[in-house]
Amino acid sequence: MAKRTAPEINAGSMADIAFLLLIFFLVTTTMDVDTGITRMLPPPVENPDKNIDVKDRNVLKILVNSHDLLLVDGKPGNINTLADKVKDFMTIHTNNPNYPETTSKFIPELGKKVVMTKGIVSLKNDRGTSYEMYIKIQNELARAFNEMKNEKALQYYGVKYKQLVNPEKIKIINKLVPVRVSEAEPENVGGD
């Protein structure tokens, strides 16, 4: 019997098939990367203690009403200056009764340092506040704390906070700049 050569498959339409599949995936692809502000909610409390005493000097009260207007520490505030206010509030001023209390703490590698331990940023919004405003405030708060972390990281390690790789160092910076934000349950004044 004569040796038969293998019949050749016509591959001319292969490109067309591949194109068709390609176009299908092109259309269905969503390349969006999910980004957002990550927060931890406080764990549920059975019997909330209403009478927790926090000294007035230790709290920076941020109130937002249903018209998206800000009240920062009893005075009308502005979203553009909020981050600076938070930074100023959380900066260490030893023995200044207008600023929150600080304590000396031992921090590994750096030794004894004066750390902001009592300062809290308290955020309270109305049920009628718009989500956009809420996120803006959250963003400003995050920015304030991130900038402070950056400053500390630059001061001690010469790099920005995000460029730190050593988890120990990140921990130390987080100890130096504690993110203390508390959210109160919203009031219903302006309505939903």
Binding site: D34, N125, I135
Partner: peptide, 26 residues
């Protein structure tokens, strides 16, 4: 444009069910 009321209700429910890690998608 959502009002915070409904968002807060959701957050409270998440707290109750111990799903504490949240991400405000932006």
């Amino acid at each position: 444009n959502t009002r915070m009321g409904i968002v807060t209700d959701v957050k409270q429910q998440l707290r109750k069910s111990n799903a504490l890690k949240i991400n405000y998608s932006t």
